[in-house]
């Protein structure tokens, strides 16, 4: 009866026979799309050079990964999964618009060659490559990395201004939200980054736990500091808001702290990790040598992730 099917070459595999349509590549593509609004706002604020720096950074990151994979690792090409492109954009977003092009190349090399490929590539790097690149540049080229003066903006970033002034003079929170301030490429427009956050949540790329916990931790920290300093009135809520909107808080919390590879595997672990990032960031900002501390905080908490993964486990079903 079924002679035709006897000849048929059936496919056999263990269950399940359903796979998600999500792939590494689609996830990375979604991250790139989520970064787009911030790129546009940044271009509007700083001019066309933004596009140039971002493009250079992406090309360098992808190029280094391709070359290393091809000639050192000698494995199949991995640039197609777009993770190197994401690193490139994130690295560019952490640079000031006046940065010389050769520093971008060095940053990309450190991010990809040192922080990512030496550990075995995507999925195995303990630290976020873009942050390693940025921190390396910040220490190696402190002058170029902190020159934020352009035609549009003079002087220091809001965080730096705050750091070196003895009193809290209030902040233009509206400017911070739309990106009308000095700063690194991607960290100036809190509103655009939040739009990207919403997109990532909608696409189920990340969950809300890590970014929101970082925000809450930073806000509470700032509130208690303001309160401890005896401030009253508007400053009590403006000071926390300022810290959330200024500097790399948004970019770091939404796009870099949530990096799959370097964040904990469980929601509870993620919350612990996020509290650590929020608190450390505020400590660095208030009492550290640099005006900004997000990158350092994320790097330090990256280092604790294996420990968190070891000790913070999901509750097993049926176990109290």
């Amino acid at each position: 009866m079924m002679n035709a099917d006897k000849v048929k070459n059936l496919i056999v595999a263990p269950s399940p026979h359903v796979q998600t349509t999500q792939t590494t590549q689609s996830i990375m593509r979604d991250v790139l799309i989520a970064l787009l609004p911030a790129l546009l706002v940044s271009t509007w604020a700083f001019g066309w050079r933004v596009i140039g720096i971002t493009a250079l950074s992406v090309v360098c990151c992808v190029g280094f990964e391709y070359l290393i994979q091809r000639f050192v690792v000698r494995g199949a090409s991995t640039v197609g999964n777009l993770s190197a492109a994401v690193t490139g954009v994130l690295l560019a977003f952490n640079l000031p618009v006046t940065i010389p092009w050769w520093i971008v190349v060095i940053g990309a090399f450190v991010a990809i060659a040192v922080a990512k490929m030496t550990f075995g590539g995507l999925g195995k790097n303990p630290f976020n490559p873009a942050i390693v690149g940025r921190v390396f540049l910040l220490i190696a080229y402190p002058v170029q990395m902190t020159s934020f003066a352009t035609d549009a903006f003079t002087g220091a970033t809001p965080l730096a201004a705050m750091k070196f002034s003895p009193v809290f003079a209030g902040a233009e929170l509206g400017d911070l939200f739309i990106g009308n301030v000095a700063g690194s490429l991607g960290e100036v427009a809190a509103g655009a980054l939040l739009l990207g956050f919403a997109y990532l949540l909608w696409r189920r790329v990340i969950t809300w736990h890590i970014p929101v916990t970082i925000f809450i931790t930073m806000a509470l920290f700032a509130f208690f500091v303001a309160w401890g300093r005896g401030w009253t009135g508007a400053a009590l809520w403006e000071f926390p808001m300022f810290h959330l909107l200024a500097g790399g808080a948004m970019l770091g919390a939404i796009f870099m702290a949530t990096d799959y590879v370097t964040s904990p595997m469980t929601v509870r672990g993620g919350v612990i990790y996020a509290v650590g990032i929020g608190a450390l960031t505020m400590c660095f900002r208030l009492w550290g040598a640099y005006p900004e501390g997000m990158s350092f905080a994320i790097l330090i908490m990256n280092a604790t992730v294996p420990l968190i993964n070891k000790y913070v486990k999901n509750r097993r079903f049926g176990v109290k």
């Binding site: 792939t23 590494t24 996830i27 999964n81 993770s83 590539g121 995507l122 999925g123 969950t207 799959y260 590879v261 964040s263 904990p264 595997m265 469980t266 929601v267 486990k313 999901n314 509750r315 097993r316 079903f317 176990v319």
Partner: peptide, 20 residues
Amino acid sequence: QTCIKCAKCVAACPMGLEPY
């Protein structure tokens, strides 16, 4: 492809295990 530690398997496991 290679595991990117996205933790989706951990979140999806109804028994609270660590599939990866």
